[in-house]
Design a protein around this nucleic acid. Sequence first.
DNA 1: CTCTTTATAGTCGTAGTGACTATTAGTCGA
DNA 2: TCGACTAATAGTCACTACGACTATAAAGAG
Lengths: 240, 240
Amino acid sequence: MLQGYDKYAHEPFAVTVDLAVLTLREGALHVLLVERGQEPYRGHWALPGGFLHPDESAETAARRELAEETGLADVSGLHLEQLRTYSEPGRDPRMRVVSVAFAALLPDAPEPHGGGDAAEARWVPYDKAGPLAFDHDRILADAHERVGAKFEYTCLATAFCPPEFTLGELQQVYETVWGTALDRPNFRRKVLATPGFVEAVPGAARLTGGRGKPAAVYRAGTATALHPPLLRPSREGRPA
Amino acid sequence: MLQGYDKYAHEPFAVTVDLAVLTLREGALHVLLVERGQEPYRGHWALPGGFLHPDESAETAARRELAEETGLADVSGLHLEQLRTYSEPGRDPRMRVVSVAFAALLPDAPEPHGGGDAAEARWVPYDKAGPLAFDHDRILADAHERVGAKFEYTCLATAFCPPEFTLGELQQVYETVWGTALDRPNFRRKVLATPGFVEAVPGAARLTGGRGKPAAVYRAGTATALHPPLLRPSREGRPA
DNA sequence: CTCTTTATAGTCGTAGTGACTATTAGTCGA
DNA sequence: TCGACTAATAGTCACTACGACTATAAAGAG
């Protein structure tokens, strides 16, 4: 309780934010990693992040770090989601660090120019994001799970898409994040039946790789929730 | 990023946990509140909580505080869920406090004997949990929303029930948390059709208030997820 | 052309569910 | 002891959503 100020010696903690910045490149989920130039975990890869400044909230700090690490001028429209806070005593060998973790979703993936203090920053395929420093493997896995779960009942998937996209591209986003194939006509029916999920760009059509019939072009709609949800073909429901 | 140790003057923060301890009493959602005996917000009600000790995680601290505030001997089996972390610079007028918020669900509600430093602790109906200290109104609302959402796709509702309960009681839990009435036969069908949600206690039956046909008694099952989900009759799906 | 590729349209059967009605098993009050 | 009342449980019916399909349209490649 908060009346304990004078009673407890409230130990000071260092507070950081850690970011799982996700994007899709060439049909595969990628995550932004930085190479550590100092001990501990020197030479290991880690999630970008940094200390909370005295005058900012965790969300503000996360957005600032996101801008620094990606080099993007405008990160105001990007989806940033607080995951949870990691506070196990031993998670940083040097000192007591409590870290607020965020997931960020980017549509396109400009190569990061290590603007921050990172020795090197790079997009790494999610599957090859080997053992990371600290508990960042856990944070990254939690981010993936959260994003996958939110795809079921929100319109979050469009955050991975450029401003204009085809339904095939949107389906690829789902398939890549969930790691499962989806039936194309059924996916299409579901998306179009959900009001506000996507809206057609009149008259626009685009070829999806040079071949086949050009696909209609859509924009993200105004809806944020998905009712009823678009459930992933999960472990459940199978003949156990 | 975490290599910034020597560069940034990483300001120390006080880290606390705040608990939204929820229970059902007489068919209404109640929350455990403590009366503040010190400035600021002296005399106001607040969520229980306290500072993180140097050697414990936020989860450990939350469980410790929960035991202290409720006076319960065994809080190991209780559902404790990290909500999110609140870190706005001005949320505590005295100092920079970052708070990790949790929601806790209790089946029965023993009157708390203010074991901690709380001047007074009391169960307060959710609706009458007037303006709270700090940003605790927001935390409490977030807890309610999170629990309501989790009811849709998990078996969490049994956390509000005693070890043995009737389907009518379980339905009341849903109705109270969601604030909507549910059709009894349909609710029953749905719960029984979900394997592992509840399991029958053989031969047991109980009257639900002295009247009517005695109801069969159930225990919480082993399942944790609900597939397909039990969606609340929401704002969506209505003729807009 | 025709073959391949991709988008789009539509069909069919079934699980899930909302809105009901009917029946059963108790208590309470006259 | 006999209804009236109450609550639990059983069952019906129609409609929606969805998985698994087949069919057609529109492009490029050869």
